[in-house]
Structure formats: C-alpha cells, structure tokens
C-alpha cells in the first residue's frame, strides 16, 4: 500500500473547514512560518465564526519580518474579512497604537473576542494539548491580570498559575519540506508554534515548499514525524511572499 498525504491544492485541503472551527496557525509575526496559501484558501472558502489560535491576531498594519516594508498576507485578512469571532494570542496588536491592526479596530467595536495569553504559556498550552496533558502550573503571569479567575498554587516556594491545554479542529502550519508520509523539516527561525501546533489539532495541514520521497529527508533532522500530519500541500509559488495587495488579487 502506498501512503500519500499530499493533497492537490490548498483549496481542497481546507474544503472541510467549517463555520465555527477552531484553527491553529503559526507565523511568529512575519511571513516566515506562515501558511499563506492556506490562509488565502480559507478566505476564498469564506468560512465564518472562526476561533484562531496564533501568536498574533494577524499583524496586518505593520511590516514585521517582511523585506521591503510590504504588508504580508496573514490571518489578518481573515479578521478583516469578518470571518473571525475570537483570537487566542500573545501579540494581538501592533506595537504602535497609531497603526492599528484590523483586529484592534474590530475589537474596539466589540466585534471580536480576545483571549490574551503570555507567549510562553501559549506555546506550552499547545504542547500540552498535543501531549495529552490537560493542564499545568507555570509561574508566568502570577500576580497579573493573566492569573485572574485561575487557580494559583504555591509550588517550590513560588506562586504558580494553573493553565489548561489548547487543542484545535485544524492546524494550518508551514514547514520547509515534507515527504509524502507527512514527515516535516523546518527552516531557520520559522519553527515557532508550527512544531507544537502540528501535534495539537485533529487535522494538521502542512504547507511546504517541496515534497520528496520517503527516505530523502534525513531521519536525524525530522522534527515532526508524519504520524501527526494528515495533509500536505505544496506551495504553488514556493519562494513567494504574498503581500496584501497581491493576496487580494489572487
């Protein structure tokens, strides 16, 4: 039997994403590590009431980690398009209040919800979700707004906050290369949330530059074994950075 998790297109790979779905998607902030073609396909599909779990709420008003100062396509286009009901993130707004993101504008109007999570807690909640750990105690956020309403316990002489695991219906992640069994390798500083997210969703869809045959990826450097991955989509334009203007046209 030949196993192949490679799907013909981003559009088909997201065809079963439903209204109200919880979707994890990475991108530390810039286009590196961001599954841009899957995001464009989600916008085309038009699903609504999505809950997005990501480091940012779509930094669509500033040029973070993007050469040439352009504005990259990220999940901000889904927020701007009214498809997102809630975001779980650590970095929901731009650093400068004078350049508000789509998310901040809608948040001020009360049209989107925010669950604000410290970045390390976010990563750990996702890792816990994928690892079958329902909750854990962390010192992060003790004595701050983040701890409000949560169980706080003194462990090892310090206050710790109980944080629960995060899981999702889908994870749209970005890797560098895959084989057709779904094994993934990543590039540079774009591992970020992609690696833990690849373990924490029911359907994990990986957008990659290239698919190779099993055995061609060095088993010593595979970071995400294929058992986590359901679908692999090869980018139509491997090296391309989609900017908001180009994204709108495609």
């Amino acid at each position: 039997m030949t196993v192949s998790k490679v799907w013909p297109s981003a559009r088909e790979a997201v065809a079963d994403v439903f209204d109200g779905a919880v979707i994890m998607m990475d991108g530390f902030g810039g286009p590196g590590g961001m599954a841009q073609e899957l995001i464009l396909a989600l916008r085309e599909r038009g699903v609504r009431d999505l809950t997005i779990i990501s480091n940012t709420a779509g930094l669509d008003s500033v040029s973070f980690g993007t050469p040439g100062g352009s504005l990259p396509v990220n999940h901000g286009i889904l927020v701007a398009n009214g498809q997102v009901r809630k975001v779980i993130a650590s970095f929901p707004v731009s650093a400068s209040p004078s350049r508000p993101t789509s998310f901040e504008l809608l948040y001020r109007e009360g049209k989107v919800e925010l669950e604000l999570v410290p970045q390390g807690t976010l990563a750990e909640r996702i890792r816990a979700g994928g690892a079958g750990v329902a909750a854990f105690y962390t010192p992060t956020g003790a004595g701050t707004l983040v701890a409000e309403g949560k169980e706080v316990r003194v462990l090892d002489g310090r206050e710790h906050v109980l944080e629960t695991a995060l899981k999702a219906d889908f994870a749209c992640i970005r890797a560098w290369k895959a084989d057709r069994l779904g094994n993934l390798v990543y590039r540079g500083s774009s591992r970020n949330f992609n690696v833990p997210m690849a373990t924490a969703a029911r359907v994990v869809i990986a957008e990659v530059d290239e698919v190779v045959e099993p055995g061609e990826l060095d088993p010593e450097v595979i970071l995400t074994p294929g058992l986590y991955v359901k679908r692999v989509v090869v980018r139509r334009h491997p090296g391309k950075i989609y900017t908001r203007e180009q994204g709108a046209a495609s």
Partner: peptide, 15 residues
C-alpha cells in the same frame, strides 16, 4: 524504514 524518524523520549510519550 524509509520515512522513519527519531524523537526524544518526552516526545515519544507525548505522542
């Protein structure tokens, strides 16, 4: 087997 991979003990039990 071709397509096999290695993970740490922690990750093996996380699986």
């Amino acid at each position: 087997l071709p397509g096999g991979a290695f993970v740490s003990h922690a990750d093996a039990f996380a699986m």
